[in-house]
Amino acid sequence: MVTWLAMLIGGLYAAGFYLMLRRSLIKIILGLAIFAHGANLMILAAGNPRRVDVDVKIPIVPEGAEQLLQPYADPLPQALVLTAIVIGFGLQAFTLALAKSVYDRMGVDDVDAMRDPDLTEPPTRRDAQELVSHEELDSVAPAALPGTAVGS
């Protein structure tokens, strides 16, 4: 199982990284979510390596016992991951709100086009959509942005 888990984690990281390299804000957020899944799985797998292949007991002290019985699943990474899941959701909600807010104001989803100083001013989405359609943006943006070539 560890083998497959390792490949799964690698796949999630690769997909998350690929999506985060996109210029579309929404894809970046999707990538972040997939990345977070990979990270959570890795913490759990790394914190608990040997026991993945045996049938572990859940980390709950059975009635009558004084402590966890071997072999138990490591409770510490579980506690870490549990809060990470919830925090990750908070982050996701925030980035989604950010994306929506940005789109409402600028009318674009392309993070490179957002750097265009002319786009930071339009107050409403309707105005922005009237001002720049996406075709125009694609032709205008690269010239208007200094150093677009860097890292893109």
Binding site: V86, F89, K100
Partner: peptide, 13 residues
């Protein structure tokens, strides 16, 4: 806190 957080986010969005 979790209820308040989730519902603030969900209702707002």
């Amino acid at each position: 806190v979790v209820v308040g957080f989730t519902l603030t986010v969900v209702f707002t969005l």
